[in-house]
Design a protein around this nucleic acid. Structure first.
Lengths: 182, 182
DNA sequence: GGGGCCATGTAACCCGTTACATGATTGA
DNA sequence: TCAATCATGTAACGGGTTACATGGCCCC
């Protein structure tokens, strides 16, 4: 599923500019399971416009740059739904953090701690953020996905909490030795 | 972190051929958080060899194709450890399945069921697989990562179990109506 | 004054995927 | 007989990232 299709999907949730679409990938509902940068979104939107999948309205704002808000056309909506008829591609996960933790033995204790704590903080903040969102009258799919995200971040934050010392204990000892020798 | 570095990492676990490295990404310890295809592994290995990060031994086997087993050199090991000194890049997740589930309303009930069940089966099988592996005398990092994977797959498989009906109930009703109308 | 947010876009580059090419052996 | 596993590699193609380019406003 390319960025074009993803943009179509985002636009089913309401009209948006390229900048706003980006934010949905960074902080919004898609943040947990997808991402896209400006360099892919703007060209995608241009292509979508040329193909008639979206239309655009330009707003000039005072004190802010002009804004191009895109709307899904009926053709675009149909194309998105058609895309959903094809089977989903396998998930793709690339966690460099996991690689680092896997090779914890090769890291200096301080760096291990830094990597671990930053990673844990990320899971924890995502968990509390998602837990703060109310379970309002969202469509079922979105409710399910929200709960999925909550479960994901909460379980893993808790796992990391529970096992921090297992990893760190030994590293701290190694660290203490190293520092004593310094 | 590119495939070259990942190959170096895999080779710290023991000598391996390109084919075997691929398997570690597909089924082995890295399956949960990384992937790489032949088209990237073989060229990476060639480059690594040219740069002196690995050396190679060729084994001719009877009844099987010849095999090139790569070993990490000291330079290669040092390069890998040096790479680990740099801060890890953010995780990248691309879950098309989540997109499909997010837009559950746009899916036909049968397809929603198919996507959901296949996804659930995947989590369930990964969970039982990881639960089956003993917590032997692995290095701490690898134990931590294994537990992390277990927690990941188990919590999400359970979440999906617990919420299947929330998603499917409504879809089944829609389906029943559709079928009645057919 | 400086950093961050709003806002849009372009272009080069790189990395990796997909598909192709080859071929013997083993088990269903 | 057909599919799968073992095993290595190449080439084209595509997609997306990174970096660049621009600029005003607001808050500290």
């Amino acid at each position: 599923m390319d960025v074009k299709t993803l943009c179509l999907g985002v636009l089913t949730l309401g009209d948006a500019s390229g900048y706003e679409i980006r934010k949905k990938f960074e902080e919004g509902p898609f943040a947990a399971f997808y991402d896209a940068s400006y360099g892919s979104i703007y060209p995608a939107l241009a292509k979508l416009l040329a193909d008639g999948y979206v239309s655009v309205t330009e707003y000039t704002q005072s004190g802010k740059p002009a804004k191009k808000v895109y709307q899904l056309t009926e053709v675009g909506r149909a194309a998105f739904i058609a895309e959903l008829r094809t089977p989903p591609a396998p998930d793709r996960i690339r966690s460099e953090h996991m690689v680092y933790l896997f090779f914890a033995d090769y890291l200096e204790p301080r760096q291990l701690t830094a990597v671990f704590d930053a990673y844990h903080a990320h899971f924890e903040s995502m968990a509390t953020f998602l837990e703060g969102l109310g379970c309002d009258d969202l469509p079922l799919g979105r409710q399910f996905v929200r709960g999925f995200g909550r479960t994901f971040y909460r379980s893993l934050a808790d796992y990391m909490d529970a096992h921090r010392d297992d990893l760190m204990g030994a590293a701290a000892k190694r660290g203490a030795e190293t520092e004593a020798a310094e």
